[in-house]
């Protein structure tokens, strides 16, 4: 369980990192942030990059800031830092709650928020959060900077819209006034989710005005459960609305089964997680007013 030989660079600017990525493209150069996914893959020799470009020393990537109503998290912000950040708690409590489900504290001490999104594991927590929050990802490549919406970003298991010559430098979350909930079912504490559900909901006069619901573990990418959103938006908050959203959100799902749960069990679990998340988010939305 040791990686094959690779070269290692530790640039100090984004521009240098992008240049190194271009320079070593033929060597299958890969970007390293917290290393909690890439390094195990290298140890298993499932990933064999010839060149690893470490972002650790790149200036300015380790900050969390609030800018124009957006929460901006840099590419080297560790999950544990985000989990404890007052800015995250204020602007994206859904993210804060989800971070508590990401593996174990020692892993969160090293793993990064952006790295988890970039890795795009279909069972991971943070891609679902990004999708629910309509996050935007900033990618920098030889042609400059561009923004990619979460909806466009996730394309398949471990596959994203990021170009091979691009580096994700930050993720931007718009705050969502209302209630939130992140509910996860995993085999054991700290394990990958079998199913995880992220819910945001806003109420006015006891009615659901707006919501965002996303789930991981139900397909090759995190899924936005728009049918569930439509099913309960406009209704009076309560068990009937939740029933409708659960039924709509899980109708027609056909997740692939795996070792940890077959397809039918996965849907059973999704229904349970979705119901709990909708209930909790609704309660919190009611509490906020």
């Amino acid at each position: 369980m040791k990686p094959p030989p690779f070269r290692y660079s530790s640039p100090t600017t984004v521009a240098d990192a992008v240049a190194l990525l271009a320079e070593h493209a033929a060597d299958d150069a890969r970007v390293l942030a917290g290393g909690q996914s890439l390094v195990p893959l290298m140890n298993f020799r499932l990933a064999q990059p010839g060149h690893v470009i470490d972002l650790r020393r790149v200036a300015g990537l380790d900050t969390i800031r609030l800018a124009g109503g957006e929460l901006v998290i840099g590419a080297m912000v560790r999950q544990a830092t985000a989990e404890r950040s007052p800015e995250v708690a204020l602007a994206a409590p859904l993210l804060a709650e989800a971070l508590g489900h990401v593996a174990h504290p020692p892993i969160r001490n090293s793993g990064t928020v952006v790295g988890s999104i970039a890795h795009a594991d279909p069972a991971a927590e943070l891609p679902a959060v990004a999708l629910a929050m309509d996050a935007e990802l900033t990618a920098v490549g030889p042609g400059g900077e561009r923004r990619i919406t979460a909806a466009d970003f996730f394309q398949g298991p471990f596959t994203t819209a990021l170009g091979a010559d691009e580096i994700l430098t930050e993720v931007r979350f718009r705050s969502f006034p209302g209630g939130h909930a992140f509910v996860e079912f995993s085999r054991t504490h700290g394990n990958f989710a079998v199913v995880a559900v992220a819910v945001l909901v806003a109420l006015a006069d006891g009615r659901i005005t707006r919501s965002a619901i996303a789930a991981s573990g139900l397909g090759g990418t995190p899924l936005r459960l728009t049918a569930a959103e439509q099913a309960w938006e406009g209704s009076t908050a309560g068990s009937a609305a939740i029933d409708a959203a659960v039924d709509a959100g899980t109708a027609g799902l056909d997740p692939a089964g795996d070792l940890h749960a077959g397809s039918a069990t996965r849907i059973d679990i999704a229904r349970s997680c979705l119901r709990e998340a909708l209930e909790r988010a609704t309660e919190r939305a009611l509490d906020r007013r």
Partner: peptide, 19 residues
Amino acid sequence: TPDRLRAAIRAAGVVTGGR
């Protein structure tokens, strides 16, 4: 496992279960 328990519970007629 959840799969084995759900299979047994499903076979007893509790299709989706819960509240």
